[in-house]
């Protein structure tokens, strides 16, 4: 992101309270042109709320946000001209056809009919939706619905796309197609903010924010976040994985031993020191195992480690 360009999305100390909880608690961040900015976190972390605040469909309790320089809180209707929002729940009309939905949103955004007609064809074909133009939206598969949602969101060429868990429950093949489209949009200069509950999917974002209990805990590129991962991870494969886990879980320097099918996922502070210890303990207990191998941390490992670290050092 070039610092010279003004941010396309900027949130300053956004706060949204619901009875008893801070859904969003002083979140500040900015997203520049050409970024795919990911919000990751469990359900209820505040991802949906912050996207709704940015989309201007819910006013914040305090703080401010701008979309392409326009204040969303003060002038939501003007900001809405530059953005497109895809709610988590399919927001299109299931009793309208693909074509009718697209035309409806073109009209709502006042896209001139001649321009609209020029855009519909290429959009449909590049999304692989051309054969389904006359199908009712309700009869599309999950993946196709999301593509239709994206087509409707793109018909007025927005500068900012706000996507709330667009791939949840969508089959992996469609998910890949969807991400290809997002990357091509990024090429065209669209700024994308996307939330996802799939931690492994988060790695596809150019920048990532870990959201936890309404707070943006960490925010950086996936690679740099990964570099923040404290300690090392090992995999120990064994036909008696359960016994392996029991034997090593309470050894010093081991912060986690997770049983995963036929292997144990072990978090250690120092692999050079701990591997020989693990091997010794398992050999003494006569548990068959394959030599421990270093494992790449998953996003979940990372998320947990970072949250744990945050808790211990306030």
């Amino acid at each position: 992101m070039s610092p010279a360009l003004p941010p396309r999305i900027e949130a300053r100390k956004l706060v949204k309270r619901f009875p008893g909880v801070f859904a969003v608690n002083e979140m500040s961040f900015s997203v520049g042109e050409g970024e795919i900015f990911g919000l990751v976190g469990p359900d209820g972390a505040g991802k949906t709320t912050v996207i709704r605040l940015l989309a201007g469909v819910m006013p914040p309790d305090s703080g401010s946000a701008t979309i392409d320089g326009v204040d969303v809180v003060a002038d939501p209707e003007r900001a809405k001209q530059f953005l497109s929002y895809m709610p988590q729940r399919f927001g299109l009309y299931e009793d309208l056809t693909v074509d009718e939905n697209i035309r409806f949103y073109a009209d709502i955004f006042e896209v001139a009919p001649s321009i609209r007609d020029q855009r519909i064809g290429p959009l449909l074909s590049s999304f692989g939706m051309a054969p389904f133009q006359r199908r009712l939206a309700g009869q599309l598969s999950g993946g196709m619905k999301q593509k239709l949602g994206l087509i409707c969101a793109l018909i007025h060429t927005p500068r900012v796309l706000l996507l709330d868990e667009p791939t949840t429950g969508v089959d992996p093949v469609s998910r890949r197609d969807f991400w290809k489209i997002l990357y091509s949009l990024r090429e065209q200069g669209v700024t994308i903010l996307i939330s996802t509950a799939y931690l492994e999917e988060a790695e596809r974002c150019t920048r990532l924010a870990l959201v936890h209990q309404g707070v943006m805990a960490y925010c950086d590129t996936p690679a740099r976040l990964r570099a923040m991962m404290p300690g090392k991870l090992l995999n120990v494969v064994s036909s008696q994985a359960r016994d392996v886990q029991k034997a090593i879980a309470s050894l010093p320097g081991i912060s986690g031993a997770l049983l995963m099918g036929d292997r144990v996922h072990v978090a250690v502070d120092d692999d050079g020191r701990r591997i020989p210890e693990i091997v010794r303990v398992l050999e003494e207990a006569h548990i068959p195992f394959e030599p421990p191998v270093p494992a790449e941390p998953t996003m979940e490992d990372l998320f947990l480690a970072l949250l744990r670290e945050r808790r211990t050092s306030p």
Partner: peptide, 14 residues
């Protein structure tokens, strides 16, 4: 109920 309103109100429609 159908969730279409959330999308509609995110547009500049009055």
């Amino acid at each position: 109920e159908r969730g279409t309103m959330e999308l509609l109100i995110s547009t500049p429609v009055l």
